[in-house]
Amino acid sequence: MIQVHYFAHLREVSGLEVENLEAAGKTIAELKEMLSKKYHLAGFDTVMTAVNEEFADEETVLQEGDHVAFIPPVSGG
């Protein structure tokens, strides 16, 4: 299992803060495609991804127990 964290508009659209998924072995790109279909998420291409609290690229392969977070363009400050 991997744990997926949602924030900002992604949290509102999916209706979830966190969910556990069977996605070990998939790449970030594959996971994004799967979830964008599942939740009808628009604009997923400008969303960054973090794996275990560090930015990761689309080719990163997910491992069992990973924490994945989708990071929409940030607006702190």
Partner: peptide, 27 residues
């Protein structure tokens, strides 16, 4: 990773990159 949601008199919206100048095509 911090986001702000603006609440106006006539609506609300999560603010992305303020100028919409930064996209992350590589993710």
């Amino acid at each position: 990773p911090i986001w702000k949601k603006e609440h106006w008199e006539d609506g609300q919206e999560w603010v992305g990159n303020q100028l919409e100048t930064v996209a992350y095509p590589s993710g």
